[in-house]
């Protein structure tokens, strides 16, 4: 049995579930669907199934006997995503990248494993993306972008060319990053949060929250409810 644990039970995890079988088949071509088992893994106590799939605790999942065992941290909050992924790697579970058949990845894209690309995501040429990249529906990453580790994109985020997105940056639904120049790329500093429908036209300092068009610094808001995964 080949088992995939989708870490989390939130929105991202439920969206990720729809891409699980396709991604497992990519990793194990020729294996029957019967040979795969997909479960949710959560630290929250409570319900035992979600959408017809079992919910396990992290301890149960790690103790599970399986021929091959994968995880994907489908947790929108990048800090929790990092914590969950680190836990699984310590337990010897390997990451599985999840992508939908509709995903379009052009040549010359370098990606670290563990990504989640749920539907209609386009990655243009000459893009480098760090580990556990997490995108919403219908996102576009244009040419000559560098994206760090644990970066989160909401739905319909468009990142134009020549931008550097540092680690743990969150770009919410509908926000866009304007094109930089080859010699002076737009830089979004580590841990910055770009609010929904904001248009970023210049560099963003680390940790800043930006909103509006053109985007201006605003008071931080709490994203994702702050609950554990």
């Amino acid at each position: 049995m080949i088992v995939l644990g989708i870490l989390g039970t939130g929105i991202a995890a439920r969206t990720a579930m729809h891409t699980a079988t396709h991604s497992l088949q990519l990793a194990h071509p020729g294996t029957d669907d019967e040979g795969f088992q997909v479960v949710f893994v959560s630290q929250k106590p409570g319900t035992s199934t979600l959408g017809g799939h079992d919910i396990m605790s992290a301890a149960e999942f790690c103790a599970l006997e399986a021929e091959t065992k994968y995880f994907n941290p489908a947790i929108a909050d990048s800090r929790h995503r990092k914590q969950a992924a680190t836990l699984m790697l310590h337990q010897g579970v390997s990451p599985l990248s999840l992508s939908d058949p509709s995903t379009l990845i052009l040549p010359d894209v370098t990606m670290e494993p563990g990504w989640l690309l749920p539907y209609l995501n386009t990655l243009n040429s000459n893009v480098r993306i760090g580990k556990y990249f997490h995108a919403g529906v219908s996102t576009t990453v244009s040419h000559h972008n560098e994206i760090g580790d644990y970066v989160t994109f909401g739905h319909r985020v468009a990142c134009s060319g020549n931008a550097i997105i540092e680690d743990h940056v969150t770009i919410c639904t509908g926000a866009m990053v304007m094109q930089g120049k080859p010699d002076k790329p737009t830089r979004i500093g580590e841990g910055a949060v770009i609010h929904a429908n904001a248009i970023v036209i210049g560099d963003v300092v680390p940790g800043a929250h930006m909103a509006g068009n053109p985007a201006k610094p605003v008071d931080p808001i709490q994203l994702f409810g702050g609950e554990p995964w």
Binding site: T15, G136, S138
Partner: peptide, 25 residues
């Protein structure tokens, strides 16, 4: 080009345009 994922319920004569996204729950 819309995307509906795990939507719980939709009432009578709902109407939406292009490229809408309705998420779980």
């Amino acid at each position: 080009y819309s995307f509906f994922c795990d939507v719980e319920s939709i009432g009578q004569h709902f109407m939406c345009g292009a490229f809408t996204i309705f998420g779980p729950g």
